[in-house]
Amino acid sequence: MIPVLTVRHLSRSYRLRQGWRRRTLHAVDDVSFEVMPGETVALVGESGSGKSTVARCLLRLEEPDGGRVFLGDEELTGASAARLRRLRLRAQIVFQDPSESLNPRMKVGAQIGEPLHLHRLARGREVRSRMLEMLDLCGLEPQHADLYPHQLSGGQRQRVGLARALITRPRFVVLDEPTSALDVSVQAQLLNLLRRLQRELDLSYLFITHDLGVARWIAQRILVMYAGQIVEAGPTEELFSRPLHPYTRLLLDAIPVDSPRMRRQRESPAGEPYIAIDPAPGCRLIGRCRWAAAECQAPVELLDSGPRRLVRCVGHFSGRVPVVEREVLSPSQTVMD
């Protein structure tokens, strides 16, 4: 099976000027992964991890400095402007803040139908009928088509963003924190919708989020990013029950509990997220990791550790960092169900 998305050695850096010093921020540093048909992969990380830069580079909304991106077997990087526009039909993106990702002066219906106009996929009455069909599929009413974005609620706006992304029937969708601006109950509606659309339209998702609970619910596989690099990758349940990288453990330990019953004594995570400005060659977690040692100052590779598991940690492979099985409560145990 050919992956719907293949990313190889993707990099993106920014030049900064701090006073008289020129420095380089390595927002995305040698990131590789793929997404298989029908799969949902979650890219999780804190602010500054580079996860959103990855999203923007994938569709070349921002030009990567290096690396290659393939949609199916066609290469997106290096494609001409005309070919890029055509390729973007097959890969779409939904943004975080639904109130900022819609044009405030265009009616909702016109915005959803716009891709059809642009790519001459339909004209006149057909645009409207396909737009209404998409509206319905995303759980909106036909009346909504004639409203402006500000007349809708946050959840409805995000449905509009989704409808606009899906109207050209892409096979792959990047979801960049699509629910983080929404309330829990609205988030639940949207997550359910995403899962239903995935089944009905045969979609693959790259779901970018800082919320591990959401990632766990929606994704089959998780990539953990820290300071521009993927530090760990693996199937969702394995990663939650047996995290291998110290950062993944830090992250999992920081998630607040689901119920007061589950409160436990634990260490407060040390330090704050690292931003990779002129980083040293070694591991980027060094300042926050309790297992940091001299060997961590050499460059670290992302290596296989068992089937479908990847880890970027020297200490893990030398056996210094112990592997701990985390007690993961099964869904029926966790909360009410």
């Binding site: 959840g155 829990v184 639940a188 359910n192 609970g213 619910w217 689901d258 909360v335 169900d337």
Partner: peptide, 22 residues
């Protein structure tokens, strides 16, 4: 109860219990 059940951590595989309306 509805709020608690709408959390993604509340269920793993089944649909989340969204609150209808607004």
């Amino acid at each position: 109860v509805s709020l608690l059940r709408a959390r993604p951590s509340a269920v793993r595989s089944r649909d989340l219990a969204a609150i209808p309306g607004h």
